[in-house]
């Protein structure tokens, strides 16, 4: 029988999660080890974001468990198929985040706060791919960021690093 923990989101929603799934978060793992996690574990994460976080953790956990149960026979082919499945799942996950930048931002903060290194680096790579090859104004528009440089400042920096702005 798997040990379950109750996570409480910042908007007071309760999520029942297996210990193995939630231990991917170094922050929560430490709380459990320290014995601080009795009853509900309150988290500074909204229910919408927490649901997304858990979606990620469950997918990762699913993969680890299956690999442990495999014998060597046919493992290679199975691994290949699994890799394809995971890729497909990750692509879908990325597309949803790309479409909703607010969720992406909250998820970045949550993965940083919960110390989920795999999710954090996945998200950072996603953002890196989104900004690659783009001009500052395109990035501002994409993430809805205000340009707080004065025209003079902007001109000076653009001139100083002219090579990076060559078409």
């Amino acid at each position: 029988m798997a040990i379950m923990y109750a996570l409480k989101s910042s908007d007071n929603e309760i999520f029942e999660v297996e210990q193995k799934v939630i231990e991917q978060s170094e922050t929560i793992k430490k709380m459990i080890e320290d014995g601080a996690a009795t009853g509900e574990i309150p988290l500074q994460v909204s229910s919408k974001t927490l649901a997304k976080v858990l979606e990620w953790c469950k997918q990762r956990q699913h993969k680890t468990v299956e690999n442990e149960n495999d014998d060597n026979k046919g493992k290679r082919k199975k691994e290949r198929d699994e890799d394809d499945d995971i890729k497909e799942w990750e692509n879908k996950f990325s597309d949803e985040l790309k479409a909703d930048k607010d969720v992406l931002f909250d998820l970045l903060l949550a993965s940083n706060y919960l110390d989920l290194p795999a999710l954090l680096s996945f998200l950072c790579q996603l953002v890196a791919d989104m900004v690659a090859g783009k001009m500052p104004e395109e990035i501002r528009r994409m993430f809805n960021i205000e340009n707080d440089f004065t025209p003079e400042e902007e001109k000076a920096i653009t001139a100083e690093h002219g090579w990076a702005f060559q078409p």
Partner: peptide, 18 residues
């Protein structure tokens, strides 16, 4: 962490966002 995943040129452009 994001900066570590992008090229030097991208890094210069990102530094001019805000």
């Amino acid at each position: 962490k994001i900066i570590q995943q992008i090229s030097l040129g991208d890094c210069v452009r990102v530094s001019l966002v805000c």
